[in-house]
């Protein structure tokens, strides 16, 4: 029986964000933008979607005088990502 894919993760940008965050403790907005090749606005929208689903936590702070946004994956997000990968593998 094929497992259903999580529609929230079945998107190039959101999947790239989750793949990054599952590997690290946290990553900043600049790096996520670089790795997803998304525009700042689009990435913001996608990050908010993931945050609304409690898959990630977004921290807005400062590094010196510069604003810095960092993201962290949550336990719910990590579990959702693992289930997504298992579902992908079940199809192949």
């Amino acid at each position: 029986m094929f497992k259903q894919l999580d529609p929230l993760l079945h998107s190039q940008i959101r999947l790239a964000v989750m793949s990054t965050l599952v590997s690290v403790e946290s990553a900043d907005f600049t790096y996520l933008k670089e790795i997803t090749h998304a525009t700042a606005g689009n990435l913001s929208v996608q990050l908010n979607k993931l945050a609304e689903a409690d898959y990630i936590v977004i921290n807005k702070g400062y590094e010196g005088k510069r604003p810095k946004t960092t993201c962290k994956i949550t336990d719910i997000g990590r579990k959702a990502f693992q289930e997504y990968v298992e579902a992908l593998k079940s199809y192949l």
């Binding site: 999947l15 793949s19 590997s23 790795i35 990968v85 199809y91 192949l92």
Partner: peptide, 20 residues
């Protein structure tokens, strides 16, 4: 759908490797 799933796995592997 099958190609998209393969691409998804490839994307995951690529991103994780780059991040490491």
């Amino acid at each position: 759908t099958e190609m998209t799933r393969e691409e998804s796995l490839a994307l995951i592997a690529q991103v994780m490797k780059k991040t490491q």
